[in-house]
Design a protein around this nucleic acid. Structure first.
Length: 585
RNA sequence: CGGGGCGUAGCUCAGCUUGGCUAGAGCGCUUGGUUCGGGACCAAGAGGUCGCAGGUUCAAAUCCUGUCGCCCCGACCA
């Protein structure tokens, strides 16, 4: 490709709106253009990189025996209501109506769609296992798109879905996908750490996330110093030393609950300041409702004042829960902001108590009346037997620095970008939608499923976040929009002749090459080449040509190497292959 | 959804407090010339519904009201 015929709008300045490095470089290098919050044009250069990433994903998916297909973005809302995800996704789901008022959605993911497909055509165990995948646009009506291309409303996604007649078969495919993912990220030149994850609203039983460590990431991963444990924050477990029960909790010398006024102080910080006590000595009690059908029972989650309730962990012990709306809770006597565990003495609520907060012999807690807290709370003395009987002690808080892994190694916390996610879904979707097969005994069984997602756009963002330098992008050879840029110092005479010929030969050899034929000063061409980050640059200058030589320089390395003009294309081609091979190792 | 900030040329921004001539600068763009190994210089140009609507006023980029959009923090989130 000749540069003068491309659309590569490089810019000296990034727009003020672009905050993170990847976003700034993407715009300065002319990869994308923003259209609306979380909506972007992919310009030719960015689209080439994206296609390279997708090609690698396709190769690795195909190698696992998966088959690519294409599914619509526009989907009937009906399917989503059937699986319950219409409600679960809530406002995150893009909803549209057609002219006949039929409710449709723009798919954020395609479990329903692909399950309906398989339901229609797969009826026998002999047709299983089956792996299907798609790479296409998906939609989410994000509350707040942000961080450039990291959190957007329309995005590309590779989603693979597997269908099985046994848990063993699912496990086999899960492992195959896991290893394919490791290869994909390595080939794309981005680092990725596999961490245990919650499967979230998508449902299912086992799950790993692949996270690229970098400061701009929105995910928190938790790893143990011994390297044996890695999980995301939502999932991360911790070692509980000397576990307590309500019966063995510390019994402080009996002291009556002392009411203390805390006008307007509904947060731990406010209460702590007002009473001059650190949050570690306070009990935070959050009100949840459980189940789906009214009357939904109350669940009171208690953690230490300086800790955060982890809803996923809470669900493991209390089932499906969500934060209670303030008004109904207040009507029931649970004054949000001033709730204490002893509310369970008078209200039939289940207490779920984190071990750390149970270890407090005497604590400050909500007073169960507006603008009042209590001092001297003790679990043994101030909880009635009935309430204590309903109570459960379990790890329900987020891990924090200072915690140890389940095996006892200190935990470290770092940020990262979620690049991919693999799930064992089980039969959640097949059951909801009636996708069954006949087994050897002619019995109908729900198909067992797995699903495996990768965000190609996030791979690109991760590459930019981790590989750029002061001059611009430094693409890995494998996903660079062009592999080689030819830069004649002046595009005329001998240099032009050599440049044209090298370009033609490289094209013939299948090398992605860009020839900077613009009438620009050398400085401009060098700056632009560095900015858009082409891995190999061939410079044709007067002196070199006179000596029968061209310069070959690797982006990011100091000096060039001189190559003879004879067999120049072959030498460049070989260098490209070498770089590609290194990435595949 | 709560809090904060911002909308003036393709990009970065000034002008707004205290209303008043033809709305400015740098970068980018066009034309001509001189240049040519790391974002050149000179000269001449093109380019604007000052986000939109309404209001106040003799007069609005500037003041008032509403509205739309974008960014950041939080809440939320396969």
């Amino acid at each position: 490709m000749y540069w003068s015929r491309t659309l590569i709008p490089t810019a000296r300045q990034a727009p003020a709106d672009a905050q993170i490095a990847s976003h700034q470089w993407m715009i300065r290098a002319g990869l994308v253009r923003q259209i609306a919050a979380g909506v972007y044009d992919w310009l030719p250069l960015g689209w080439r990189a994206m296609q390279k990433i997708c090609a690698i994903i396709r190769q690795e998916m195909d190698a696992t025996g998966a088959q690519e297909l294409h599914l619509p973005a526009l989907l009937p809302a009906q399917w989503w209501k059937q699986t319950g995800r219409y409600a679960d996704y809530g406002p995150l789901l893009f909803k549209v109506k057609d002219r006949r008022d039929t409710e449709m959605i723009l798919g954020p993911t395609h479990e329903e769609c692909v399950t309906e497909l398989v339901k229609a055509y797969v009826g026998s165990h002999k047709q299983l296992p089956l792996i299907l995948y798609q790479i296409q646009g998906k939609f989410r009506d994000e509350a707040r798109p942000r961080n450039g291309l990291l959190r957007v409303r329309e995005f590309f996604m590779k989603d693979a879905y597997s269908f099985h007649s046994s848990a063993e078969s699912l496990h086999e495919t899960y492992q195959a996908m896991y290893h394919a993912y490791v290869r994909i990220f390595r080939r794309c030149g981005v680092s990725a750490v596999a961490v245990e994850a919650e499967s979230g609203p998508i449902g299912g039983e086992a799950s790993h996330e692949f996270i690229c460590p970098c400061a701009a990431g929105e995910d928190v991963m938790v790893r143990s110093e011994d390297g044996a444990y890695a999980a995301n924050l939502e999932r991360a477990g911790r070692a509980i030393f000397a576990p307590l029960t309500l019966a063995t909790a510390a019994a402080a010398p009996p002291a009556p609950l002392q009411r203390v006024p805390t006008p307007g102080a509904a947060t731990m910080q406010q209460v702590g300041q007002m009473l001059g006590a650190p949050p570690q000595h306070m009990i935070k009690t959050l009100v949840f409702v459980a189940g789906k059908d009214a009357p939904r029972p109350w669940v009171l989650a208690c953690v230490r004042g300086d800790h955060e309730v982890n809803e996923a962990k809470l669900r493991h012990v209390a089932g499906s829960v969500e934060l209670a709306p303030a008004e109904p809770a207040r009507a029931a006597g649970l004054i949000i902001g001033f709730v204490g565990p002893h509310a369970a003495n008078t209200i039939p609520a289940q207490l779920v108590i984190d071990p750390d907060v149970l270890a407090l012999p005497t604590a400050i807690a909500g007073g169960n009346e507006v603008d009042w807290h209590v001092k001297n709370f003790n679990w043994r003395h101030h909880l009635h037997p009935a309430a204590a009987q309903r109570a459960v002690v379990a790890d329900i808080r987020n891990a924090v620095p200072g915690d140890r892994s389940p095996a006892g190694s200190p935990l470290t916390f770092s940020k990262g970008i979620e690049l991919g996610h693999v799930f064992k879904l089980g039969t959640r979707y097949s059951q909801a939608l009636g996708a069954t097969y006949l087994d050897e005994n002619q019995q109908a069984q729900a198909i067992i499923m797995g699903c495996y997602g990768i965000g190609p756009g996030r791979i690109l963002v991760a590459a930019l976040e981790t590989l750029c330098d002061a001059d611009g992008i430094n693409w890995p050879m494998s996903i660079a929009p062009y592999q080689v840029v030819i830069t004649p110092i002046q595009y005329e005479g001998r240099a032009r002749q050599v440049a044209d010929q090298l370009h033609a030969e490289l094209v013939t050899r299948g090398v992605d090459v860009l020839l900077d034929d613009r009438d620009q000063r050398p400085g401009v061409k060098f700056k632009d080449a560095d900015l858009i980050g082409i891995p190999l640059r061939v410079v044709l200058g007067e002196k070199g040509l006179a000596a029968g030589q061209a310069e070959l320089k690797r982006r990011g390395e100091k000096g060039p190497v001189m190559l003879p003009l004879a067999n120049l294309a072959a030498a460049v081609d070989e260098r490209v292959r070498k770089c590609l091979a290194e990435a595949t190792l």
